[in-house]
């Protein structure tokens, strides 16, 4: 699913976000990436989504080489990804339902599937009653759940969730973690970054990556540890 070989990322201002990252993620895995703020968690997700390109090394996502020359193909690749952004990136002035539908209009779904998937996704995140609410009027936690609903309604092969529990109370945070980890049962690869390590400490399965100063330390638990 994802293969990184000696990947480094240095921003134009000279900041080195990632250094010599080597990574191999299989389909259906769940990955938790932790690390302090500014350690490079978001940068790694940006590389996987094609928002940034490695300045050194090679990165392939679902067989697609992540280089600037491949921008058009990377755009197509994004259609197989369900991103959940730290700042949600919901479209203002639209309802929760419209935001979810908009994320699917250009995918290979029929109008009926788009509507059904959107309803199901809203139900899954517990926001069916807010379908017609403008996203501008939703709370932080609700907006986060709409962003997750938009990602999962797309039935992606890969979910990238950047700090999906940031600024949420414990109950809401646990609820969102449960929703995201449950996607693994649908053979979706899920990558979650979080600085809230207490939310994942008791997880028995998954790949745990700790990033510190741009370098990775990986630990596998449960089934993944034996594969």
């Amino acid at each position: 699913m994802i293969v990184a070989k000696d990947v480094s990322l240095t921003y134009q201002d000279g900041t080195q976000a990632l250094k010599d990252v080597n990574l191999r993620i299989k389909a259906g895995e769940i990955i938790y990436i932790t690390g302090p703020s500014g350690s490079g968690k978001t940068s790694l997700l940006k590389l996987i989504l094609g928002m940034e390109y490695p300045t050194e090394g090679h990165l392939r996502v679902m067989g697609q080489s992540m280089v600037k020359d491949e921008e058009d193909n990377i755009r197509k690749l994004r259609r197989k990804i369900g991103p959940v952004f730290q700042e949600f990136k919901l479209i203002r002035g639209r309802t929760a339902f419209e935001n979810i539908v908009l994320g699917m209009r250009f995918l290979d779904f029929t109008p009926k599937e788009i509507i059904e998937n959107s309803y199901m996704a809203l139900e899954r995140v517990g926001l069916k009653h807010k379908r017609d609410s403008l996203v501008d009027k939703l709370s932080w936690g609700e907006s986060q759940r709409v962003a997750i609903a938009r990602a999962i309604a797309r039935k992606p092969s890969l979910i990238l969730a950047d700090e999906p529990t940031g600024n949420l109370d414990l109950d809401n945070a646990l609820n969102i973690m449960d929703i995201l980890t449950s996607l693994r049962d649908e053979n979706t690869t899920v990558i979650i970054t979080t600085h809230a390590t207490h939310l994942i400490e008791d997880k028995e399965e998954g790949t745990f990556i700790r990033i510190q100063e741009g370098r990775l330390k990986m630990e596998r638990r449960g089934v993944e540890a034996y594969e």
Partner: peptide, 16 residues
């Protein structure tokens, strides 16, 4: 520009 940027990140084609 925010909406356009989001749609690009979701993989929407330019024509859409």
């Amino acid at each position: 520009r925010d909406q356009i940027n989001t749609l690009e990140l979701l993989g929407a084609p330019d024509i859409f």
